[in-house]
């Protein structure tokens, strides 16, 4: 058994665990943080993606003891006071999830992507999510959701819009909701 401590979603934990314990099983079975699911055993699917010390990682390919002294954020730690992040909102509004099993990992991976590239192209989004598999959506609405969240985050970061004659607010539009404009019109 190995002693270690880690902070998960803002709460610090001290534990003694077997060194072989996977971080994802620590989260799920020891802390009861079941928002992060397990989807494979080879690191391919990305369902278990969390943030460790600021970086996205696949928590099935990290030992819990490797997170010693570290800070973990899971999908359960994203919303503050019940207010969703732009990504969570965008996944909902753009219908970027169906069964939702890949969603926690997808959101965590997208969050990492936007941190490095706040204004990605659709191709960059697809590339940035290459380590996360979804079997329901065909990815198209996930790409749209990340675009929408990026636009929303840029809007929030931008200085407050000024009047039209004194300055130019960020006018780049967020993508319209999932069906508008995307389904070709007759």
């Amino acid at each position: 058994m190995t002693r270690f401590s880690t902070t998960v979603d803002g709460t610090r934990y001290e534990d003694e665990v077997e060194p072989r314990l996977l971080l994802v099983h620590y989260l799920r079975d020891h802390l009861g943080l079941t928002g992060t699911p397990v989807g494979c055993d080879t690191g391919n699917c990305g369902a278990c993606t969390v943030e460790l010390d600021g970086d996205s990682v696949k928590s099935c390919s990290v030992l819990a003891v490797q997170a010693d002294g570290g800070e973990v954020t899971t999908v359960q730690g994203l919303a503050t006071d019940g207010e969703w992040t732009a990504l969570q909102t965008a996944f909902h509004e753009q219908h970027a999830l169906q069964c939702g099993y890949c969603t926690p990992g997808m959101i965590m991976a997208a969050r990492d992507l936007l941190k490095e590239n706040p204004d990605p192209t659709p191709e960059e989004i697809r590339r940035g999510l290459e380590g996360n598999l979804c079997r329901c959506t065909g990815y198209q609405n996930i790409v749209r959701a990340v675009l929408a969240a990026a636009a929303e985050e840029r809007r929030r970061e931008a200085p407050a819009p000024r009047s039209a004659d004194t300055g130019r607010p960020d006018t780049r539009p967020a993508p319209a909701p999932a069906t508008a404009g995307q389904e070709a019109r007759t």
Partner: peptide
């Protein structure tokens, strides 16, 4: 190599 999360570790 692999994907962004794997490249972090």
């Amino acid at each position: 190599v692999a994907d962004p999360a794997v490249r972090h570790r």
